[in-house]
């Protein structure tokens, strides 16, 4: 299946939205008795979301950033995510062998991290199974079993691998 393009690809804007209040000219330099930070939070939220969307969700680079550095940072985040998943779920690099890293990076490109790393590991496995990967049937069976053991409160009873793969595919589509 083709993963849905993340909504963030269109970005939250670069903070130039007219609805966002400008910072008042006179700031409270001491912070003592400072007014509410709500407006500052809103401006910061838009700026940080624009940057993070560019780094993990394929959104355009926000204005003023060095594009090459954004690419370096983006790759560093994906590599970090792959190594964290390898620690959280060491069985996955075990099952996938040398193909683990490239398979994970292909998955991560279309799916930003939105929750915990355990959920990420399960989604990664489900996506591979949905694509009939890995190609080696024994590895695919192992991966299906791994997914089944962890995926949900009521996994299908152990049965033919095709049933597990169907369940994984359904689970992946629901998310």
């Amino acid at each position: 299946m083709v993963p849905k393009r993340p909504e963030t690809a269109n970005g939250p804007g670069t903070g130039q939205d007219g609805a966002v209040p400008e910072r008042p000219a006179i700031a409270d330099a001491t912070g003592v008795g400072a007014a509410s930070t709500d407006a500052a939070r809103q401006r910061l939220a838009l700026a940080q979301t624009a940057l993070l969307s560019a780094l993990v969700a394929g959104a355009p680079a926000p204005e003023g950033f060095d594009r090459e550095r954004l690419r370096v940072q983006s790759r560093a985040l994906a590599a970090k995510r792959a190594s964290v998943i390898a620690k959280v779920a060491p069985e996955l690099p075990g099952i996938l062998g040398a193909g683990y890293r490239s398979a994970f990076l292909a998955y991560a490109q279309g799916r930003p991290l939105t929750g915990g790393h355990r959920r990420d590991a399960l989604d990664f496995a489900a996506r591979l199974l949905a694509q009939d990967l890995p190609a080696d049937p024994a590895a695919r069976r192992q991966l299906a079993q791994w997914w089944q053991d962890r995926a949900g409160p009521r996994p299908p009873r152990s049965g033919p691998v095709s049933r597990l793969v169907r369940a994984a595919r359904l689970a992946f589509r629901r998310r």
């Binding site: 909504e7 963030t8 809103q42 939220a45 979301t49 993070l52 969307s53 939105t114």
Partner: peptide, 19 residues
């Protein structure tokens, strides 16, 4: 380490590292 969510009209996003 995260952004998005209700105030931005964007889905929640985790960086997975320090930005």
């Amino acid at each position: 380490v995260r952004a998005g969510g209700p105030p931005t009209g964007s889905p929640p996003l985790e960086a997975g590292h320090l930005l």
